[in-house]
Amino acid sequence: MIVITAPTGNIGRHLLSRLLESAPAAGEELRVIVRDPARLPAGARDRVEVVTGSHGDAETVDRAFAGADAVFWLVPPDAALTPHDAYLTFSRPAVDALAKHGVGHVVGVSALGRGTPLADRAGLVTTSLALDDLLAGSGAAYRALANPSFFENLLEEADSIRENGVFTDFVDPDRKAPLVAAADIAAAAESLLLDRSWTGTGSVPVLGPRDLSPNDLARIMTEQLGRPVRYAHQPLDELYTTLVGYGLDKTFVQGIVDMKRAKDEGLDAGVTRTPDTASPTDFEHWCAQTLKPAVRS
């Protein structure tokens, strides 16, 4: 039995789709934890066991982890809370349930940066790495999918790209860094969940096929969208002021700012890309298949 948390999110929906195809042949049953079962794909509802509720709730994870062999763990960040509460307090009931039910394997979504000088001052990344340690303490074998920023972050810029031909971020225009598609993270998770020969604690970087700078992204978007797109570099103090103005928790906002600053200082550059750490989806393909329809909608 494999349990999937956040099955309707960016990564979870890809993972669920993949496991619906591969799990039956491997003799695996699937269980999902979801607040609103109506958000599951229609074709999935009759093929998985559904536990309704929040995976931050003790009773929900106790029911969901009973009899489970493996769990995919993803915390949807809640910017109304402090980073500690959003990640660690949220996950503590799950850690207790993993230990109670003797779940053997857990795959979590995490970040790059462990072991680098920036890791202890990288905001939300620092908290994410602390969450890895918390989950590893459950007694289950644990693998953290260590990811850079996602291509999907650019979907938040679709309106600006459509209306103004501009996307914004807070890193140097020429700062090259790895970027990854959510679908590739899901593929890495699927492989680990189905082949549970691994033991102990470790991380699995998922780095995309090559490093790209914001200026590289602008050039590729211009080519793929058939219209000029440019990058606008914004200062980090503007980010803090804007997000606090939306009423978000100030410590969570500071965590975002510190994460962005660490990335601009090279946080994601500490892992060498190899055939094992590279993932296949390139930005050109993602633009054509995902960003282009969003910009045109």
Rank of each mutant, 00 (worst) to 15 (best):
N153I: 11
A182T: 15
A111P: 00
A146D: 01
K100V: 09
E157C: 13
A66M: 04
T60H: 02
A94L: 10
L124H: 07
R143D: 03
V95A: 14
V180T: 06
T60D: 02
K176S: 13
V166C: 04
D169V: 02
D62V: 07
G53A: 06
A97G: 14
A86P: 03
I161V: 15
P76L: 12
R175I: 07
G115Y: 00
P77F: 13
V107F: 02
A122R: 09
E163Y: 05
D132Q: 09
H105W: 13
G67Y: 06
A70K: 09
F167T: 06
V103Q: 06
D133Q: 10
D120Y: 07
A111Y: 04
G108H: 13
A158H: 02
F65D: 03
D57V: 08
N164R: 15
A80W: 03
D174A: 15
A111E: 01
P83L: 11
R63H: 10
G123I: 07
F90T: 11
D172E: 15
H55P: 03
N164F: 12
D184K: 03
P117V: 01
D57F: 09
G165F: 01
G108K: 04
V107G: 01
A146H: 01
L81H: 07
V61C: 11
S138E: 02
P76Q: 12
T168P: 00
V71Y: 07
A181N: 09
P117I: 03
A80E: 11
V95G: 11
S91A: 15
P83Y: 10
F65K: 01
F65Y: 15
D78N: 15
A146T: 00
T116S: 15
A97Q: 13
V61P: 11
F150V: 13
P77M: 12
F150D: 08
S110V: 07
A146L: 00
D78S: 10
S54H: 14
Y87K: 05
V166H: 02
A58H: 03
V125F: 06
L129G: 02
R114N: 01
S110A: 11
A158S: 14
A86G: 14
V51L: 10
V71G: 06
R162V: 04
D184M: 01
D172A: 15
F170M: 08
T52L: 11
T89Q: 10
D69Q: 09
A177D: 09
L88T: 03
G123E: 04
V125M: 05
A158D: 03
H55I: 01
D184W: 01
A146N: 00
D62W: 04
N153P: 04
V166M: 02
L88W: 07
D120K: 09
T82L: 03
F150Y: 15
V51N: 04
N164Q: 15
G102K: 09
D133E: 14
V71A: 10
W73K: 05
A136R: 08
V106Y: 00
A111H: 09
A70L: 03
R175C: 05
A58P: 04
S149T: 06
E59G: 14
V171A: 14
E59D: 15
G139N: 07
S91K: 04
D159W: 09
N153R: 07
L88G: 05
V107L: 02
L112G: 08
R63P: 01
A130V: 00
S160K: 04
A122L: 10
A177H: 06
